[in-house]
């Protein structure tokens, strides 16, 4: 059962990372415009045509 000594912290740490990630996303306003995000992903404006 010694394997628990490092498996438990790893499992909890991963979950905690997920939580921190969500809170960061929430804080940085990524949930403010859900419909817009769905549309913006299709916008390929950042790909400039050569010569432009």
């Amino acid at each position: 059962m010694n394997v628990l000594v490092y498996l438990l912290p790893i499992a909890l740490g991963l979950g905690f990372l997920g939580l921190v990630g969500f809170l960061w996303a929430l804080k940085s306003g990524q949930y403010d415009d859900l419909d817009g995000a769905a549309a913006r992903i299709l916008d390929d404006d950042d790909i400039r045509k050569p010569g432009l």
Binding site: A11, L12, G15, F16, G18, L19, F22
Partner: peptide
């Protein structure tokens, strides 16, 4: 809304890990 979402995230994280 932000507060409720934070609470939801914390309880979700806790529920999943405790369930483990």
């Amino acid at each position: 809304m932000r507060f409720l979402l934070r609470c939801l995230a914390v309880s979700g994280f806790a529920a999943m890990n405790i369930m483990l």
